[in-house]
Design a protein around this nucleic acid. Structure first.
Lengths: 216, 216
DNA sequence: AAGTTCCGATACTGCACAGTCTCGTTTTCA
DNA sequence: TGAAAACGAGACTGTGCAGTATCGGAACTT
């Protein structure tokens, strides 16, 4: 349910075509404004000005401010961690730390800043909370899960480890840290999480035998 | 900086005294409204009606809606986990699970619901983010830290474990889980966190020798 | 060329709500 | 007992903003 759908069955009308490039401009302007002033301070005039668009153009494509914001958040899902090109250093520790690319981190912090701005609407819009989680934390957790699965396959860690739960730990804590605590997601934090929590927990799984995770 | 201070030097004026019990009624009404409709939907009329108070009474005590909300959040700090009466089952696992009291959990979820409602203002008001963290997650993390320290003292876990970081894991993840993911903080989740993450990590500390946590 | 739909820009409308003011009543001190 | 201040209730005001309507101009179809 991205932008407002144009009429589906078209009997070939005359008139100017809708410029598809405006969609992206508007969505990106929305994210910028969101990151700068938060959802509470976001106004349609601000978005329109930032996008160099008229308000009518926005309302021709989206039915409401809420819908626009939801779509903008969903739009973030692109440029995400590439699950096809994960780091491969030979150890899980190296792989996890290898996800910390300055560029990737900068983008990640931007996402979290946007989520901070969003938070107002989270409480009212279930769809928005889902979109935010799917765009920011979910992909990151999937990357961690993939790295952990590989570590299990090569025998580095036990198959009985609760990697379903463990893969959520760092992304969730990073989100909370940025969202509420306002502390940077930096390398020292990542290292203390990897070395103090994840790697120790994986090296010493709870008990042998299959485990089910209820945290997924 | 709780309610608006009355005049300090008083030459013994006539007139009715300000009723101190109204402060608490108004703060609690604010928290109720916050939990129900979120900060975006919170209006002063709603708070006044819920508190059975006139708006003038509120504005006689607080300068603005923002100040009222900040004070209401700080007000939550009371009735917190009692650090003097922590569970003592003999094992860290038992102690951590012992914090899960239906009543305490109900209250904890209420706090998180309030924080969800708050989130809108988090991005704009640094003071509010700090108050929310101090009222909801901080006390919980302190309880965990105390339990972990005790486990170290009785030799159950190694002194080299990064308990500063580990004590933040469950409170932060619970907050994120409730705030964004909208999943209940229930016993299965707690068990998977304790058995899948915390206890394994503590039983197998990263390395021997002192560690410093950068996550505090 | 004519007609239609797009565009950015901007004026306009309607509403929701923060904050103030008023009123009739109650409490306290002199 | 009377002036002063606080109380609940609610009327009132001003503003900010979502959403709409209108403009002149540009692009596309026939």
């Amino acid at each position: 349910m991205t932008p407002k759908d144009d009429e589906t069955g078209e009997p070939a009308q005359p008139g100017r075509k809708r410029d598809p490039s405006r969609d992206a401009s508007i969505l990106e302007a929305t994210l910028e404004v969101l990151a700068e002033v938060g959802a509470a301070g976001l106004t349609m005039d601000l978005v329109a000005t930032r996008a160099g668009a008229g308000k009518a153009t926005i309302y021709r494509r989206w039915t409401s401010k809420t819908q626009l914001v939801i779509d903008a958040v969903a739009h973030m899902k692109r440029n995400q961690v590439d699950l096809e090109h994960l780091p491969d250093t030979g150890t899980l520790r190296g792989d996890l730390l290898g996800l910390f690319k300055p560029q990737s981190i900068e983008e990640g912090e931007r996402r979290l800043r946007i989520m901070t701005g969003l938070a107002s609407l989270l409480s009212q819009e279930q769809a928005l909370a889902e979109a935010a989680n799917a765009a920011v934390v979910q992909p990151w957790a999937e990357a961690h899960l993939a790295l952990m699965r590989r570590a299990v396959e090569r025998g580095e860690i036990s198959a009985s480890a609760d990697i379903g739960t463990l893969s959520l730990v760092i992304p969730s804590m990073a989100a909370y840290r940025t969202l509420v605590q306002r502390k940077p997601f930096d390398l020292p934090f990542l290292v203390s999480m990897v070395d103090g929590v994840i790697v120790p927990a994986l090296r010493h799984p709870p008990s042998d035998g299959p485990r089910d995770s209820t945290a997924t």
